Every structure is written in C-alpha cells, then in structure tokens.
Lab assay of single mutants.
Amino acid sequence: QTVVIGDTTYHLNNPEAAQQIAKELAKKYGLKVVISGNTIKLK
C-alpha cells in the first residue's frame, strides 16, 4: 500500500493502517483522500 502526501511517499505493508492514517490526516488537515488501485493520495 502506497500513501502519497504532497511530495512524500510512504510504503505500508498494512492496507487498513494506511487507509486509517490517510483518513485521520485528511480530517486533521482538511485534505481530500483519493484512492486508486493500491495508492492513497492526500490532496
């Protein structure tokens, strides 16, 4: 699972954790979560 935040890319072996982290950050910073395949992007 790949999480992309701005110009930073994180690789996590746990998809659920990756999605949870993405949701928390999106909520905290008012970002939009875009999931395509096994890549999660925060914009």
Rank of each mutant, 00 (worst) to 15 (best):
K43I: 15
A17M: 13
K28G: 00
D7R: 14
K27M: 09
N38I: 07
I40H: 00
N38T: 08
T2G: 05
A17N: 06
G37V: 03
G30I: 02
I40V: 05
N13Y: 09
S36A: 08
T39Q: 07
Q20Y: 09
Q20V: 07
K41V: 14
T39C: 14
A18H: 02
I21D: 00
V4T: 10
A18V: 08
K28T: 02
H11T: 07
P15S: 11
G30K: 08
Y29N: 06
T2Q: 08
T8S: 07
I21M: 14
Q19T: 08
I35H: 04
A17V: 11
K32H: 11
T9A: 08
A22R: 02
T9M: 10
Q20A: 11
T2Y: 13
V34E: 11
A18L: 11
T39V: 12
S36V: 13
Q20H: 09
T2S: 08
L31T: 04
N14D: 12
G37H: 04
A17G: 03
L12R: 02
V33I: 14
I40Q: 00
V33G: 00
K32T: 14
K28Q: 04
K41I: 15
Q19G: 05
E16S: 06
H11F: 13
K32G: 07
G37M: 05
G6C: 15
H11W: 14
I5V: 07
E24I: 15
T8D: 05
G30H: 07
E24A: 14
K32F: 07
K43P: 02
D7G: 11
D7Q: 11
K28C: 12
A26S: 06
A17C: 14
T39E: 09
Q20D: 06
K23W: 11
I40C: 00
N14A: 06
V3K: 02
T2L: 12
I21F: 15
E16K: 10
V4K: 09
V3Q: 01
V4S: 07
L42M: 05
L12H: 05
A22Q: 01
G30F: 05
G30P: 06
Y29Q: 03
L25I: 06
Q20T: 11
N13I: 08
N14V: 09
H11I: 10
P15R: 12
K41G: 03
K32N: 09
I5S: 02
I35D: 01
Y29I: 07
I21G: 00
L25E: 00
V3C: 11
T39S: 07
N38W: 01
G30Y: 04
I35R: 04
G6A: 05
N14L: 11
Q20K: 13
A26L: 10
K28R: 11
I40M: 01
Q19I: 14
Y29K: 04
K23V: 09
V4M: 09
V4G: 02
N14W: 12
L25R: 00
I21L: 15
N13E: 11
K41S: 12
I40T: 01
K27F: 07
V3R: 02
T39P: 00
T8M: 12
I40S: 00
E16H: 08
Q20G: 04
D7H: 14
V33W: 03
N38S: 09
Q19F: 15
H11M: 10
H11Y: 13
P15K: 12
K23G: 06
N38F: 04
Q1I: 15
V4R: 09
V33N: 00
I21H: 02
S36E: 14
Q1K: 10
T2N: 09
A22N: 01
L31F: 09
A18Y: 08
L25N: 00
Y29L: 08
L12T: 07
H11P: 06
I21R: 03
G37P: 02
K28M: 07
T9S: 08
N14R: 02
P15D: 06
T8E: 08
K32D: 09
Q20R: 14
E24F: 15
A22E: 01
T9F: 10
I5F: 08
N13H: 09
I21C: 15
Y10P: 02
S36H: 08
P15A: 13
L42F: 07
L42P: 00
K41P: 00
Q19C: 14
Q1Y: 15
P15I: 13
G37Y: 02
Q19Y: 14
G30C: 14
I35L: 07
T8K: 14
K43T: 14
T8W: 15
I5Q: 01
A22T: 03
K43S: 13
I21W: 15
K41L: 14
Q20F: 10
I40E: 00
I35K: 04
V33T: 02
